[in-house]
């Protein structure tokens, strides 16, 4: 398995934020609605939701879905 310099750098940057315990994508799905609501209303993110922020920093797909969710919630809110 050959990895380019750029990819090796990406792996290093991932190791920098790797934790022993992380939320997985399904666990995130259970709390992402609450997190998005708080973010959109400018409320502080409490300790129980901090792992959500961490997961979003690691998981491109969940981050993309989160951004889409924010758009949807903003639209529904404006109904």
């Amino acid at each position: 398995m050959n990895v380019s310099d750029q990819q090796a750098e990406i792996v290093k940057s991932l190791l920098k934020i790797t934790r022993e315990e992380e939320l997985n994508c399904n666990e995130l799905l259970e709390v992402i609605g609450e997190y998005a609501e708080k973010k959109l209303s400018g409320q502080p993110i409490d300790k129980t939701l901090e792992p959500v922020e961490h997961h979003l920093g690691l998981c491109r797909e969940c981050e993309e879905e989160y951004e889409a969710l924010c758009k949807a919630l903003q639209d529904i809110e404006n109904l």
Binding site: G33, E37, E65, L69, I76
Partner: peptide
């Protein structure tokens, strides 16, 4: 039964819907 009441129900339902949509697109 898995909805834990964290955030609005519609936010939870939309999160699931968006995951279904993105899985399909991807």
């Amino acid at each position: 039964g898995t909805y834990q009441g964290r955030g609005k129900f519609t936010s939870w339902a939309l999160a699931i819907t968006i995951r279904v949509a993105y899985n399909d697109i991807r």
